[in-house]
């Protein structure tokens, strides 16, 4: 049982590492520009010169998928990080404060959770059109609610524990208690929260770019590549297949990691 659960995490991590190598390391050796057009060679099928074929402007698809994966990973990673940090801050404020502040933070979370996420995403992207980093930063700042709820709940439990009482009685300062003693206990929760929002932001980036609200052409991302495939003639199957494969593998790997961490945490608790 234990081996199977740890395998989830290891498998996910191994696949993610391979994708990261593909997106960030391989381009150093595969010296083909993802932007350079070759109009004499549009929509050519996979070959030795172009292992994943070319798009309608003759651009090398493999170079574009590498760059696109890197762009998607980068923006999703940064957004998840911002979302995690804002979630932790809100959760800590709400968990440690009593009465009105705690309630205020949680009611704000309820309001934001009640707002349809898709509408919020489209609204933000519409306002900050074409500035993908600003859009995702704002989106991440408004995606703290789940993390904050988890952290708040954990802190409320810890505050009632004998451990917390003995730390406070020993006169340890608040930062020392929080950073030295409480945060190591919540590390697993942070990781699960981060990986789940990472998977979610990858899909958001792909959806937004697919709708034309993400990365602007000629900058590739997994979403823009998929969008472009819609306009290509039916015969050019390779664009959809290679891009789709990367998306499925990437999101599955991140979900495997989140499941693996969750399982190993549950195992630690039951032990």
């Amino acid at each position: 049982m234990k081996i199977r659960k740890i395998d989830n995490l290891r498998f996910g991590l191994a696949v993610l590492v391979l994708i990261v190598v593909f997106a960030f390391v391989l381009p150093v050796f595969y010296r083909v520009s993802p932007y350079e057009q070759d109009l004499s060679n549009p929509l050519s099928a996979p070959s030795i010169d172009h292992p994943m074929g070319t798009d309608m402007y003759g651009r090398d698809l493999m170079a574009r998928i590498m760059k696109g994966t890197a762009n998607t990973l980068m923006v999703s990673f940064l957004a998840s990080l911002v979302s995690l940090i804002t979630g932790i801050i809100a959760g800590v404020i709400s968990g440690f404060s009593c009465g009105i502040i705690s309630e205020l933070v949680m009611r704000l979370a309820d309001v934001l959770l009640g707002f349809p996420k898709l509408v919020m995403i489209l609204l933000i992207s519409g306002i900050l059109s074409r500035d993908i980093f600003a859009s995702f930063f704002l989106l991440a700042c408004l995606s703290w609610m789940e993390t904050a709820r988890i952290i708040r709940g954990e802190i409320k439990v810890i505050k009632e524990s004998l451990l917390y009482k003995s730390l406070v009685a020993a006169g340890l300062s608040f930062p020392k208690v929080l950073l030295g003693y409480i945060s190591p206990l919540l590390r697993g929760k942070f990781l699960v929260s981060f990986t789940l929002s990472f998977a979610s932001f990858i899909l958001i980036e792909i959806s937004l770019s697919f709708l034309g609200l993400g990365y602007a052409s000629p900058e590739p991302s997994l979403g823009t590549l998929l969008r472009q495939a819609r306009y290509d003639p039916a015969g050019s199957y390779w664009i959809v297949i290679f891009t789709g494969l990367i998306i499925i593998i990437l999101v599955s790997a991140v979900n495997f990691i989140a499941d693996g961490i969750k399982d190993s945490l549950e195992e630690n608790v039951s032990r």
Partner: peptide, 22 residues
């Protein structure tokens, strides 16, 4: 905080009073 240090508790379950990772 300083005054609190003058009164120290010893609880019934020592395992729950200590940090498991420290």
């Amino acid at each position: 905080r300083e005054i609190r240090r003058r009164i120290q508790p010893i609880f019934q379950d020592p395992f729950l009073s200590l940090h498991p990772m420290k």
